[in-house]
Design a protein around this nucleic acid. Structure first.
Lengths: 339, 339
DNA sequence: GCTGGGAATGTGCACGTTCACAAATGTGAA
DNA sequence: TTCACATTTGTGAACGTGCACATTCCCAGC
C-alpha cells in the first residue's frame, strides 16, 4: 500500500521483506522452512507473500545453489506406446520429488545427434539424465561421452549394469517361447526387432535360449523394424513357404501385421498359425483374434527409473535396480497346432 | 596451466577471461556474437573456452535477462498416440528455435490439478505454455486463471480462438459421415468420445451436421471413453438390437473394440456393418479389416503450435493459426450395405 | 604531429537468492 | 541485576552473466 516501487518486474524477496518489516534473510528463511523463526513472523511474511503473489525466482536460486533441480530425458521414438508411457510416469514421479523434467528427442542416433541432444540437456544444467533410447549404439556412445552427471538407462545393456533398469526381456521371451512349445509347436519362427535395439536382441536371445533348452531346432530370426507394416510384409513372405505353425513376434505391432497377412492368405489364427506378441499395448486385447502377449509395466519402469536416479543424486529413492519380470498374458491368438 | 584456481566449480566467464587475457565482458561479447570484436581476440577466447570446456551458465543468464527460454507443455493423457506425437514434434520444433521444453502432466483435470500443474510450470518461469489437454473444462479453467504468459491450446475451443490451433474436427467428421451416406447407409450410429472433450464434441457436431444436411435421420450418439475396451462393450450392447448398418467411431481404438464385438457375433465387416474410425493410428492399416478412418497430422499440429507460440513471444514464427484439414483414408472396413 | 571518430575493450553494478557470520533479543539461574 | 546461553534476526558478500557507460586503441584526414 505504502510502497509501490515494484514497477514492472516481479516482486523479489526484498520487496516482501520491506513490506513485512523484516530483513530479506528472514524471508529466505521462511521460504526454506528454517527451524528457528518465530511463528508470528513467519505468518506475517507469508501473508505478504500471498498479497504480493510472490514467486521465488528459480534462476536466482539455481545460480547460488549450483543446482537446477531438473532432470533430463533423452529419448528416441517417444511417440511409441512404451516409451511414451514411461516418460509420462517419469514426469509424474520427478514432479512429486520436486524435480523438473526436460526432454530432448534424438533427431538421429549417430554420434552427432546424440551429442547435440546431450548438449541441449547439459546446457540446461540438468542434474541427471534418463535415457530411453534402447539402441545399443546410443548406450555405447553415451558411455564414451563420460557425462559428468549420473544417468540411468531404461533398458539393460546386457551386462549387469548398476545404472540400468529393465524389464527382464530374456525371461519374457522365454515365457512366450515356452508357451508355444508347451502347446505342442515345434516349427516356430521369431520375428525380431531391429538388430541394434537392446530389447530386440534380448528377446531374440531369450527365444533362442528357450528353444535350445527345450531341444527344439530353429531357424535364424527375421529382423524387423517394429512396425505393423513390416510385420505384414514379413508375413506375406513367410507364407510362401509355410513351414511353421507358430510365430513369436518381438512386439505387438509386428504381430498385428503378421496376423493381417495370415488372415489375408485365408488361414485361421490360431488353428493354422499361432501368434505371440510382446508389450501388451492396450489394443492387443481387441486384435483379431485377441493377442497372446507379454506384458511390460512401462509406468512402473518409469517410476523405478526416477527412484534410481534420485538415489544417485542423494535424494532418497529406494534405488533398487534389478529387473522387473514381465507377465505372459494368454489370449486367443495361440493354441495347439493342427496337423 | 598457470592458473588452477578453478577448484570444484565449473569454469565461468571470468575464468575464460583471465586465461585469454581479456575482460569478462569481452568473453560475454564473444558468446553473444557482438559485431565489434577483433577476429584474433574472438579466436583466442574461443580457444580458451574449448580448452576449459566452458559452458555458459543458463541460470545466471536467465537471472539477468529475466527470460528462461523455456516453454511449458501442459498435457493430459500424454501416453496416447496423438498427444505423444504432437509433444515429440513440439519438442523438436522448440529445440530448433533454441527453446527448452518442460512438461507437466495433469494428475487430475479438476481445478486443483490444473493449478498445480500450471504452478509447476510457472515456477520454472516458462515463457509460454502449450496446452494439450483437450477437455472443455481444462480450457475453461485455464482461461479463468489469467496466466501472465501467452498460451496456445492444441484444440479449438469451438469459438474462433486466436490462440487455438486445431485440426478441423468437424470437417473430418463430416467427411467420414458423408462417406458412409454416399455408400448408401441410412442407419448410422455414432460412437462418440467423452462429452467433456472438445474433439469429441466437435466430431459429434460434425456427424450430426452432415446427417442433418443430407436429410438422414439419426439417433443420439453413444458416449464412450476412447478405449478399445469401451468400444467392445458398446458393440456388444448395440448388437442386441442391430438396427444399423454402419458406425462412425470417434477414434480408432474404439473402432477396434467395435470390430472385435462385431466379429465375435459372427458378422462380417463391411458386409454386415461398416466401420469408420478417426485418427489413423499407425496400426489402423492392419486391423481386420484395415480401417477406413480420418487422418490427422499430429506432428504438423505440434510444429504449427510452436510456430504460433513463438509468434506471440516475438520470436518470429509464421504464426498463422487456422485449422488443418484432415484427410479421409478409405480402407476395407467400409462398404455398401447389404440388404 | 594532431585531431576526430569509430572500433575494440574494460569497469562496475545489477539481477534475486543463499550462505557465513554477526548482532540482537529473550530466558532462566545465580 | 547480571551473566550464560539459546533463539531469532540482520548484514554483507557471493553466485555467473549482461548492460550502461567509460576508456583505450587505431587509423584517416588535416
Amino acid at each position: 500500500m505504502t510502497v509501490d516501487s515494484t514497477r514492472g518486474r516481479a516482486p523479489s524477496i526484498r520487496d516482501v521483506a520491506r513490506l513485512a518489516g523484516v530483513s530479506h534473510q528472514t524471508v529466505s528463511r521462511v521460504l526454506n522452512d528454517h527451524p528457528s523463526i518465530r511463528e508470528t513472523t513467519k505468518a506475517r511474511v507469508q501473508q505478504v507473500m500471498e498479497d504480493l503473489q510472490y514467486r521465488p525466482n528459480r534462476a536466482a536460486r539455481a545460480l547460488v545453489k549450483g543446482r537446477s533441480r531438473t532432470i533430463g530425458v533423452l529419448s528416441a521414438s517417444s511417440s511409441q506406446y512404451g516409451p511414451a508411457s514411461s516418460i509420462a510416469a517419469i514426469q509424474d514421479a520427478a514432479r512429486a520429488a520436486g524435480f523438473y523434467v526436460n526432454t530432448a528427442n534424438l533427431t538421429s542416433i549417430d554420434r552427432g545427434g546424440i551429442e547435440a541432444a546431450v548438449d541441449h540437456l547439459m546446457s540446461q544444467a540438468v542434474e541427471g539424465i534418463v535415457v530411453i533410447a534402447p539402441q545399443v549404439r546410443v548406450s555405447e556412445t553415451l558411455a564414451q561421452l563420460s557425462l559428468d552427471v549420473p544417468f540411468v538407462t531404461l533398458q539393460s545393456t546386457g551386462r549387469d549394469d548398476e545404472h540400468a533398469l529393465s524389464v527382464d526381456q530374456i525371461a519374457g521371451a522365454r515365457m512366450a517361447t515356452r508357451h508355444l512349445i508347451d502347446l505342442g509347436h515345434r516349427d516356430i519362427y521369431h520375428l525380431a526387432g531391429p538388430q541394434d535395439w537392446i530389447e530386440a536382441e534380448a528377446r531374440m536371445r531369450g527365444f533362442l535360449a528357450e528353444m535350445s533348452a527345450m531341444d527344439v531346432p530353429t531357424t535364424a530370426p527375421i529382423l524387423g523394424d517394429w512396425t505393423a507394416e513390416f510385420g505384414y510384409y514379413a508375413g506375406r513372405e513367410l507364407l510362401r513357404v509355410r513351414d511353421f505353425t507358430a510365430i513369436f513376434s518381438s512386439n505387438d505391432q509386428m504381430a498385428l501385421g503378421l496376423m493381417h497377412a495370415i488372415r489375408e492368405a485365408g488361414l485361421d489364427i490360431p488353428r493354422d498359425v499361432s501368434i505371440v506378441g510382446f508389450d501388451d499395448i492396450p489394443e492387443a486385447a481387441h486384435f483379431f483374434p485377441p493377442l497372446t502377449t507379454v506384458r511390460q509395466d512401462f509406468p512402473e519402469l518409469g517410476r523405478r527409473c526416477i527412484s534410481l536416479l534420485l538415489g544417485d543424486l542423494g535424494e532418497g529413492g529406494d534405488a533398487y535396480a534389478g529387473a522387473i519380470v514381465p507377465a505372459l498374458i494368454v489370449r486367443n491368438s495361440s493354441g495347439p497346432p493342427s496337423f
